[in-house]
Every structure is written in structure tokens, then in C-alpha cells.
Simulated assay, not measured.
Amino acid sequence: MAADHRLQDDAGNRIPYSCGNRRYRTNIEKGCRHGEFSETLGSVFEEPLIDNGGWTLWLEHATEIETEAEVYWFMWYAPDGIPTIPLSGIFDRADLARMNSMLAQFVP
């Protein structure tokens, strides 16, 4: 059975549209709400990058837990706001700029 990797509020309740693991967590003190889906902050944009029938991909502000370094990750969510994968694809702004350049070459 898959583990629920959503962050918890002070009362121990799982927060929709948030994710954390041993090394990183969505920075829910920064950014935008996850559209109309949740009051939780953390998204870079007010809408998902992709919406595939309620399965959504978001670019999120993230924090490295040990160093507090500001990073980003892409996170897929199920229609109920639960992250679909427990793994991190962490990158910084320079990495994002490089990805953007490469994608611009691929999709003219």
C-alpha cells in the first residue's frame, strides 16, 4: 500500500496539495494556492501545468529540510489532492532555466 506523503497541520491532519519526504517538503508559506482545489499555498502558479482529467501536475516551491535551501519540484496529484509519487525531482532556478531552454528547442 502506498504511503501518504502529504504534510500535516498542527493538529496532525493531512494537508491537501502538499508533499514532504525525508529531505524535502513543499514550502506552504510561499507562492499561490493550488487553484480552486485547495487553500494550501506552495504552487508557483495558480493553475496546474497539466490537468489530465483531475490528475494535475504542479510546479511547487520546495525547501530542503536540513539546509532550508530554496528549491523547486514538479508534483503530480490525484483528483483528491494526494501526491501520486513519493520521490523528489529537485531543481533550482538555474536548472529550471536550462530545462526551459531545452524545451524551447524541442517544441518550437
Score class of each variant (00 low, 15 high):
1 M>I: 03
2 A>W: 00
2 A>T: 07
11 A>E: 12
12 G>H: 01
13 N>E: 10
15 I>Q: 02
18 S>R: 02
18 S>N: 00
23 R>K: 13
23 R>N: 09
24 Y>K: 08
26 T>E: 06
27 N>S: 06
27 N>Y: 05
27 N>H: 01
31 G>T: 00
32 C>W: 04
33 R>F: 03
33 R>M: 05
34 H>R: 02
36 E>H: 10
38 S>F: 00
40 T>H: 00
41 L>V: 02
42 G>H: 02
45 F>N: 10
46 E>L: 11
47 E>T: 13
48 P>V: 03
49 L>K: 01
49 L>H: 08
52 N>T: 10
52 N>E: 11
53 G>Y: 04
55 W>M: 11
56 T>W: 05
57 L>T: 05
63 T>P: 02
64 E>K: 07
66 E>P: 08
67 T>I: 01
67 T>D: 02
69 A>I: 04
77 Y>M: 01
80 D>L: 00
80 D>F: 01
82 I>D: 05
83 P>W: 05
87 L>Y: 12
88 S>N: 12
89 G>S: 15
93 R>C: 15
95 D>Q: 13
96 L>E: 06
97 A>Q: 09
97 A>V: 12
97 A>I: 09
98 R>T: 12
99 M>R: 09
101 S>D: 14
103 L>K: 09
104 A>F: 08
105 Q>D: 14
107 V>K: 08
107 V>Y: 11
108 P>N: 14
